[in-house]
Write a protein that binds this DNA or RNA. Structure first.
Lengths: 208, 208
DNA sequence: CGGACAATTGGACCTTGGTCCAATACGGGT
DNA sequence: ACCCGTATTGGACCAAGGTCCAATTGTCCG
């Protein structure tokens, strides 16, 4: 259905490497964009569709690991496949612990790299699906008034209208109105669904 | 509160290494158990409380990575801190991708190892808490009759008693009885809670 | 100021859910 | 044959949720 093109972003300071990788990925039908430095990638950023990053560890200025940290700070969750000519165990462990999709050593076997990239793209597609779903939930949540959000939390916690009214210092009548609006705006037909959404949204539910 | 002792399992074929690690961990108040081979650890297995595994990669017979795979197959989820004298990048990447907590090279810095072990233990404590909670939920679920489980799935899906009765080919009256028993056995007071439990239990909810 | 939106409440009415008491039916195991 | 657990249903009744109509108050904005 969603035939969005998968993109590979290549960041390497060596022009010949960029050229080689560009050809390799294009040869299997992937869209490619190359960057000569981490800074350059940070400026242009990532596009729209599913993507992954093929990143040289050793580069002047910002290293690959620095870029990884930078992206994490900026909440840019793009899977990273590292490639390095002079890698070390601690370096690879650090990268993997920081969430890297893979970490390969030069000379890189072409098939191995393609496999790694495809796994990374698959990971990104899944992550994007989940993110899109969450964004949609948050959009609905944002459409609620603060009072409605309050009522939502009580309903998701399993409270009765009567109890909610008491805790909000209002009437059961009012609670019913808010509650109906919450169900409508959140686009759910049952309390069970609402509870599941609240769970996904990490809503803190009232204790007492 | 739960002052369970944290245990470090050490698996290394070198007796002097076992002795050294034993002393190191004991010196910081950790319980230690040592094993000369992967097979030996597999036999005695892990104990009760929170624990982690400190594992040499290179060993005769089953290697550390083999043991990791073996444990994964057996669903034994114990965090592993690898130690190796002749590590390589691909080896560490493979271990990390398989879920290793850390991967250190000899000679190992004592503080670094202790830090890694403590992180691994913390990970295990969290995992154990979650597992215990899940086991409790599964216990409650197991106490339901098959009919009750069926009704549970419909209720968690947000269906009305009337609809459930129709889909089960029974009367609304009967559904109410099952439903009440479900709420009692699952120890919940509201549909919202029930829906959350069903979510955690990964119950497949009826579509139509 | 007039208007839009949010919060609030009342009344009437219907649908659902939950509880109590009581009862029938079927399959297993003692 | 008898008891137990499971599934089933009925009637009565009350509590809770949902809906329709209508209305008031306060605030923020053009």
């Amino acid at each position: 259905m969603t035939a969005e093109k998968n993109t590979v972003f290549v960041v390497d300071d060596d022009p010949s490497v960029r050229g080689g990788l560009n050809r390799l990925f294009k040869s299997v039908g992937l869209a490619v964009e190359t960057f000569a430095s981490a800074a350059e990638f940070l400026e242009r950023g990532r596009g729209e569709g599913p993507a992954c990053l093929v990143l040289d560890v050793r580069m002047p200025e910002l290293s690959g690991l620095d870029l990884q940290a930078e992206l994490a700070r900026a909440d840019v969750a793009i899977p990273i496949v590292f490639i390095t000519g002079h890698g070390s165990v601690p370096m690879s462990v650090r990268a993997m612990k920081a969430g890297a999709a893979d970490f390969l050593e030069k000379p890189v076997d072409e098939q191995e790299l393609l496999d790694a990239v495809n796994r990374a793209l698959a990971r990104d597609r899944r992550a994007r699906r989940e993110q899109a779903e969450l964004a949609d939930l948050r959009r609905r949540l944002a459409s609620l008034t603060s009072r409605e959000r309050e009522v939502l939390s009580y309903v998701a916690a399993g409270r009765l209208n009567k109890q909610i009214a008491a805790e909000l210092g209002t009437s059961e009548k009012t609670v019913k109105v808010h509650r109906a609006r919450v169900m409508e705006k959140m686009e759910v037909a049952s309390v069970a669904e609402l509870a599941r959404l609240a769970e996904k949204l990490d809503l803190s539910l009232p204790e007492a």
